[in-house]
């Protein structure tokens, strides 16, 4: 017998449709979630501790004042201090092993921009911005965490607040960041 129920009213179709929708939404939520949590690092580097003992940001992230990227430290830099420090726990042992083998620690960068955004640290440092303005209060973090809500509106908001209307013409120009 020919069914008279339209296709979209059939319960099987509806269940399958709902499932597909759920999977898509689940995937979307998962995808968003995973872009908002700190990525797993080879060593859970305690920023708070290092700042506590007096290390300056630019001691390890040397490039910020002179170029587009702040850069990640080499193992040599870690080893400069850590060869004096007893490897008391697993993480310190890990540092020691990288240092002894002369291998680079495969740090995962956290604060990065999408491909179509061109960002340079140098002009921001020249404008006397501090690191925590964008990267958050690292004294409260172990591993670096991605900052929430850092979208284009956030960039422009700051550009507007920090500049005169004439300067804002330059700072809101598309070609400042997109090319």
């Amino acid at each position: 017998m020919k069914s008279s129920i339209p296709l979209w009213q059939r319960s099987s179709v509806r269940i399958v449709g709902a499932l597909v929708l759920l999977i898509i939404m689940g995937g979307a939520v998962g995808g968003i979630y995973y872009t908002q949590i700190p990525p797993e690092q080879p060593i859970p580097f305690p920023h708070n501790f290092h700042i506590g003992v007096g290390a300056q940001c630019s001691y390890c992230h040397t490039g910020a004042a002179t170029g587009p990227n702040a850069g990640l430290p080499t193992t040599d830099k870690c080893w400069g201090c850590h060869q004096q420090i007893e490897p008391r726990n697993d993480n310190l042992k890990l540092v020691a092993s990288y240092g002894a083998e002369g291998k680079q620690i495969p740090w995962v960068p956290v604060a990065i921009q999408p491909d179509f955004v061109v960002f340079s640290h140098q002009p921001h440092i020249n404008a006397e911005l501090t690191c925590e303005t964008c990267h958050g209060d690292l004294t409260q973090m172990t591993v670096a965490e991605p900052q929430k809500g850092q979208n284009m509106g956030w960039c422009l908001d700051c550009h507007q607040k920090m500049s005169t209307p004439e300067e804002f013409v330059l700072l809101s120009d598309c070609a400042t960041c997109h090319y």
Partner: peptide, 15 residues
């Protein structure tokens, strides 16, 4: 595609 206020050129914003 819009006109840049700074460089006075036409920009193409890919995103």
């Amino acid at each position: 595609t819009l006109h840049s206020e700074v460089e006075k050129i036409n920009l193409q914003v890919y995103n």
